[in-house]
Design a binder for these strands. Structure first.
Lengths: 191, 191
DNA sequence: TCACGATACGGAGCAGCGTTCCGCTTCGCA
DNA sequence: TGCGAAGCGGAACGCTGCTCCGTATCGTGA
């Protein structure tokens, strides 16, 4: 607006720092979970906290940036699975598997997504925006094939699956619980 | 040990304050959720925060005290339901209903139970200790009646149900998700 | 090559959290 | 009624996410 041409692109050090930050955050998330303090990430990256907040206005933006590729991959897998699976239900089931994989391998991510702390609302919203349409497409195909009851919304299913993935450990197998949920989803002739 | 008889019971003001605190906490939980700051509860009760911490060494102890009666009632309902229901599965289903009722009517309680914040671990442990045996008894009866698959632990089911109750609102009906989970629990002849 | 404005950085500081600590007050028995 | 024990209040501590601004660095036009 003011100059418009002095520095058309980000400064080299800023670009470098952004990548350093993403790497440091990813490492910190693995080491200490997604709730690791911002200060720790800054220290690991060798920068001040101010630098983090300039690149990523809020914690959630940083988490989103770190996991963006994986979430995108999960979203993209939906149509592919639908096209190649034996049945819509199999496609849905496999896609849910991918989603559960993602959530359970990221220490504390599922819990962070559902935490009612305001800082994570953006994160929550972004995940849903990105993945709900994909889930809805799969679900719709299942319903049309008569393989799944028709009174469940994609949003509801996603949130249910996400919730089930919270706090998985050796005594709580989230995948098995999700399996139960998906089994319960099947269209039932008996009632 | 030292005196042993000077003051056999708590002082009157302490007993009074404990009740005031329980009432204030219950009101604060309803008004602002279980994550309401300790300072707010203290202010509502008209006491200092120190007073809260003498009566309830940690937040979790206060939450436990507030909900103790309701949790006890839920635990007691297990055997009763089992004795009077048409089938073990019906008893289990109704008992889970009670549990879901409890969790969803307490704003944020389910989330607090699963939060990985250390302060809530005691709370989480207490809930499970109290309710898992009851659930196990119901589940066992269902399995023996051949109504439910036999490879699910009570702890796992409880945690799954608890997780599903997190963040219920007008767009996410936790009860319906739990219904799916319980439906998925049924013993299946097909595979 | 260099000067200078735009850009980016670091970290002290703020507000809010749970929890601790200790000087003061109140209770209730002897 | 005196006095030791019990209880109370709230300042203070260490932690959090996040903001703000003086300082340092970059990169371009002269």
């Amino acid at each position: 607006m003011t100059t418009g041409r002095t520095t058309p692109t980000k400064r080299a050090d800023a670009r470098r720092n952004e990548q350093v930050l993403l790497d440091a955050a990813a490492a910190a998330f693995v080491a200490s979970g997604v709730e690791v303090p911002v200060r720790h990430i800054a220290a690991r990256a060798g920068v001040g906290v101010g630098t983090i907040y300039r690149h990523f206005p809020t914690r959630a933006d940083l988490v989103i940036a770190v996991y963006r590729h994986q979430v995108d991959a999960c979203a993209d897998a939906g149509p592919t699975l639908l096209a190649h699976a034996d049945s819509p239900h199999q496609a849905l089931s496999r896609w849910i598997d991918l989603f559960v994989d993602f959530l359970t391998t990221k220490h504390g991510l599922a819990a962070a997504l559902q935490s009612d702390r305001a800082q994570f609302e953006t994160l929550h919203a972004w995940f849903l925006d990105r993945l709900v349409p994909v889930c809805a497409e799969l679900l719709q195909a299942c319903v049309q094939a008569g393989q799944v009851r028709d009174d469940i919304e994609a949003l509801e299913l996603m949130r249910g699956v996400g919730n089930l993935c919270i706090g998985a450990d050796e005594r709580y197998d989230a995948r098995r619980m999700v399996e139960l949920l998906i089994a319960g989803l099947r269209a039932t002739t008996q009632r």
